[in-house]
């Protein structure tokens, strides 16, 4: 779990250019971390790449926060 969270956090920090301590459980990509809709598409692609999983479009729409992403990846991998 912590390994997945660290890897997800690293991707979020790199792609959104935010400080690591801002990437907390409930941090919303759009409302709290400055992402726009295109950034979130790219983030989901980066999660797929990093964890070797496929995230269908309807599932991708439910991944709105750092916590959502960690939970989805944990379940899928």
């Amino acid at each position: 779990m912590s390994d997945i969270a660290d890897r997800v956090r690293k991707i979020v920090v790199e792609h959104l250019g935010v400080e690591e301590d801002k990437v907390v459980e409930n941090a919303s990509f759009i409302d709290d971390l400055g992402a726009d809709s295109l950034d979130t598409v790219e983030l989901v692609m980066a999660f797929e790449e990093e964890f070797g999983i496929e995230i269908p479009d309807d599932a991708a729409e439910s991944i709105q926060s750092f916590g959502d992403a960690v939970a989805f990846v944990t379940k899928a991998s």
Partner: peptide, 10 residues
Amino acid sequence: PRRVSPFFIP
């Protein structure tokens, strides 16, 4: 096609 970046076009 799923690897094409959302930033490709812009």
